[in-house]
């Protein structure tokens, strides 16, 4: 994770699992991205934005699940995420749960891909009764990923699109994201303590930002590998 603030723009990556065109999930993600860019600007930071729509990658995601490794296009997207300074993850809720496409995409990530990465969680649904999916399901998912979702998550049921509170919540989440990014908290966590997290050799996280593999030689297994005894 790189040092922020700096002269180089914040690399903000939006993951959109909405499949419609236009998609309400994408629409909401765009609003969150726009407010985030404004909040970064207010904090003196420029932004470089990439948006990844998962719908065109649905076939690649399915094939990668079966093959056990991502193809070229997906590998590029995962590398982009590995290099992100901040992430907006937006998914529709279907059948009382996160979109399967979204979850399948996350299943393809290396476990250490998003460690300490500031992010905003975003979800849309056909009914307000799905509202807790965001905090009960998506937040738990990114807790497993050791990511840093901001306190405010953005949920929109049909009625929210006409409620001014939605915009206010978006602005609040964006301010939280800017505060996370400009404070450098992700760098403080992941940058200094990177080797204290679990890493799999060859993960995409290690290949990009960290500039090399983390191999801990001070372990029982490594002592055993070099002729020593297991404890």
């Amino acid at each position: 994770m790189r040092n922020v603030p700096s002269d180089t723009p914040v690399r903000l990556v939006v993951i959109n699992a909405g499949v419609g065109d236009p998609s309400t999930t994408r629409l909401l993600a765009d609003q969150v991205a726009q407010k985030s860019i404004e909040a970064f600007e207010a904090a003196g930071l420029k932004t470089s934005l990439s948006v990844v729509d998962l719908a065109p990658l649905a076939g690649d995601i399915a094939r990668a699940m079966v093959a056990g490794f991502p193809g070229e296009k997906l590998a590029e997207v995962l590398e982009k995420l590995a290099g992100a300074d901040a992430v907006i993850a937006a998914a529709p809720v279907y059948k009382a749960g996160l979109s399967g496409l979204f979850k399948s995409f996350v299943d393809l990530m290396d476990n250490d891909l998003l460690i300490a990465r500031p992010m905003i969680l975003v979800a849309t649904a056909g009914s307000a009764r799905h509202a807790m999916v965001l905090d009960d399901h998506m937040r738990a998912l990114f807790a497993f990923m050791r990511a840093l979702p901001v306190p405010t998550a953005i949920f929109a049921a049909p009625e929210d699109w006409s409620a001014p509170e939605l915009s206010r919540r978006i602005a609040r989440a964006a301010r939280e994201l800017a505060a996370f990014v400009s404070s450098g908290v992700g760098r403080d966590i992941a940058g200094e303590a990177w080797e204290q997290y679990q890493h799999q050799f060859g993960s995409k996280a290690a290949r990009t930002d960290q500039g090399g593999e983390i191999v801990d030689f001070d372990t029982d297994l490594m002592r055993l590998a070099t002729g020593g005894a297991a404890k």
Partner: peptide
């Protein structure tokens, strides 16, 4: 994918083999 196995091969001066199948091109280079 196991650096401990590569480490053991290196420690003893033995050979190291990557099966180089069912993965993207050059996945085993690191």
């Amino acid at each position: 994918r196991t650096p401990e196995i590569a480490e053991q091969a290196a420690y003893y001066g033995n050979g190291f083999f990557a099966n180089n199948v069912l993965a993207a091109n050059f996945h085993f280079v690191p």
